[in-house]
Simulated scan of single mutants.
Amino acid sequence: MMMPKGSYLSPKLLDLLNTFEEALAGRLKQLKPADREDVLRLSWMKSAMESLCGVHTDIKTLITALELPVADWDDKWIDVYLNNSVNLLDICIAFSSEISRLKQSHLFLQCVLHNLSNNSPDQFIRARSSLDGWKQHIASKNPRLDNCFSVMDNLAQTLDLPKIKNSAKGKVLMRAMYGVKVMTLFVCSIFAAAFSGSAKKLMDLQVHDTCLWADAFTDLQIFVNTETRNIYSSGKITILKELEAVDTGVKKLYPIVQDGVDPVEAEVLKNITSDLEKSAEIFSKGLDLLAMEVDGFFKIVLTGRDALLCNLRVGGNVFDHMGASNNRERQAVR
């Protein structure tokens, strides 16, 4: 499958493949965090999903450039593409559900801050109740995430696509799709580990070293997976850095709210409340931006699937219709 010795590709096809793989290598290198503390920050997860969107857009561009009519697609390729797209849509739905659940926790914190800003006799009782609600909400589990691991296992089982014997364009397509699946599995594995609270199912993918992006991927995977496992082994409640900052603020605030405040501690309460408000806002905004990227990825997968199904019915190149639609949208924006 990985272009064994003796396989021939024309200069044009080889250039298309190399351009795709070099772009993938560049995205992987850019995704490696500059510092270990950046691993699994919401900002890094946003960048990871943004890169994944870029790779899936690149494969559509490659398929269009290959000028490979859908009629020439092997049934196995189509089945793999459609099955994988369904799995990815399921994963996106699960991730979006978890992001929404985490965003809901912000409501509890807003109630805490609102209660503490009032000088009512029961302000501390109300604030403590909201803090308890936040703790229970964060500790709860999202059943939608349980399906993610089995879906990713299914994707991993189809990582090595069928060998292509009589189609040079098919060989390029399969090798490029292999790179897309590897990066997709890596990013989804990290997200699932971050959201589920478990590193047990974190994937360590072994990739073909003939790919131009292999070294960049291996370097990134070792760095991120190692740090992720280290964070979990430390016993932290979460590996999301922004959520950890909020949890730290809650732990500082809770005993003060529980025991009440004397005049000497009033300034301490004010500082802790201010810090919690800032960290809660950063967490909420980070989730909003991440939600937008996950939604964008969902749309890319969905439009790709729809384009293939459309062209199966009417013929033509796989992404011709979608490309025309995108061009019209870009012209409308201009």
Rank of each mutant, 00 (worst) to 15 (best):
E329A: 15
G315S: 07
V294A: 09
F195S: 04
G26D: 01
A25H: 08
L185R: 06
A94N: 04
I222D: 05
A193F: 08
C310S: 08
G6R: 14
S10Y: 03
C111A: 03
F283K: 08
L40Y: 03
L290Q: 06
S279N: 12
G197M: 13
E244C: 11
R128G: 03
H321N: 00
T303E: 15
L14N: 05
F223Y: 13
T57V: 03
D122L: 06
I63P: 11
A199W: 13
M1K: 02
I231G: 00
N311K: 10
K103I: 00
K299E: 13
G197E: 12
I222M: 06
S189I: 06
I190C: 15
K135A: 02
K12L: 02
L220H: 02
T228D: 10
I231D: 04
L159N: 07
Q30L: 03
K241E: 06
Q136E: 10
D204E: 12
D35L: 12
A139L: 08
I63Q: 12
D295N: 08
G296P: 07
G316I: 01
N83M: 13
L309I: 14
L109F: 15
L290K: 08
T218G: 09
L14H: 09
R101P: 00
F217D: 09
C53Q: 14
V294T: 13
S325W: 07
K171T: 04
K32H: 02
